[in-house]
Computed example of a mutant assay.
Amino acid sequence: MPYVSPAHYTVPDSQACQQALALVKQFSPEFLVNHSLRSYAFGLAMNHKIKQGVDKEVFFVGAILHDIGLTDYVAQQDTFEVEGAIAAQAFALEQGLSAEQADLIHEMVALHNSVGVAHQCDPEIALLHFGAGADVAGLWIEDIHKKTLHEVLETYHDQGCQAGMIQLIQDQVTRKPHSYMSTMVDLGFLKKVAKHQFAHNPT
């Protein structure tokens, strides 16, 4: 797998990207902000898996907002992927992105946990699925260059991420027992998260 330098996953200098980052920082704990930034970086680091270009502005906005449904920015009445997708789509339109771009961001957020589906979709959807899965559960880590992995972790530390994500997911399952995440938990997703220790020993 190719080495991807930090310059490749810096935050794009566009209003939509900067405002999306500011929004997430306002409503999310630090560990969730850094998880979203690592998901963006890891997704780009695995671009070789799909061999297609991505709209970097769209990819960043979708990646940084992909867990906004876990925060108080949304109503917390529906499954967090769906609420987050609707909020992210509306945000993208407010920032002047096209309807097509906003629709893609919606699908990125809605499908980022969809095992067996996301990897067959648009490259932005697939790469967010790969990036988020690598960060939370250690999936596809072998597809990230070791130097890239170390540098991403040094740039966006994961202190508190494991415990924080488990708590957020448990809260979602308690609030919404019929949500997609409840099924994931029943299948052992939290056990996978709890075992994931790559940030402490990413070799």
Rank of each mutant, 00 (worst) to 15 (best):
I144S: 02
A75E: 12
H157S: 15
A134T: 09
E124R: 06
Q52K: 12
Q170D: 15
G43P: 08
A118S: 14
A22H: 10
L65W: 02
V117M: 14
K146I: 13
D158M: 11
V193H: 11
N34W: 04
W140Q: 09
Q172L: 11
D171S: 13
G84M: 06
N34R: 08
I50R: 02
E30N: 11
L149T: 02
S179M: 04
Y9H: 10
K192T: 10
A194M: 05
H145S: 03
M181G: 02
Q15R: 11
V4N: 06
L32R: 01
L111Y: 13
A63C: 15
G164I: 08
Q159I: 04
L104C: 11
R175E: 10
A92P: 03
G160K: 02
F91V: 06
I141G: 00
T183A: 08
D55T: 10
L97R: 15
G69C: 11
D158F: 12
F27M: 05
K25I: 08
T79W: 12
A118I: 11
P177K: 11
T71D: 03
A132D: 09
E81Q: 10
Y9D: 07
P6I: 03
C121P: 02
Q95K: 14
D78G: 01
A92M: 08
T203A: 12
L23F: 09
P202V: 03
L44E: 06
K176F: 10
G188V: 11
I166T: 06
L65A: 05
Q19F: 06
G160H: 03
K191R: 11
A16I: 13
K146S: 13
V185D: 03
H48I: 02
F59W: 09
K51V: 00
L21D: 11
L190I: 15
F130M: 14
L65Y: 04
H66G: 10
G62K: 09
K49P: 00
S179F: 06
A7P: 01
T183D: 04
V61L: 03
S182C: 02
G138T: 01
T174N: 07
Y180F: 13
H112M: 14
F198H: 13
I105W: 03
D13V: 08
K25G: 05
N47R: 14
A75W: 05
A199C: 12
M184F: 04
L139Y: 13
G133Y: 03
V117G: 11
F31P: 03
E124G: 04
I68V: 15
F189A: 00
F31T: 07
P6M: 02
G160E: 07
L153Y: 06
S39H: 00
E154N: 13
Y3V: 08
Q167S: 13
K51F: 01
T10D: 10
S28P: 09
Y73G: 14
G84F: 05
G69M: 12
G116Y: 08
M184P: 04
V109N: 06
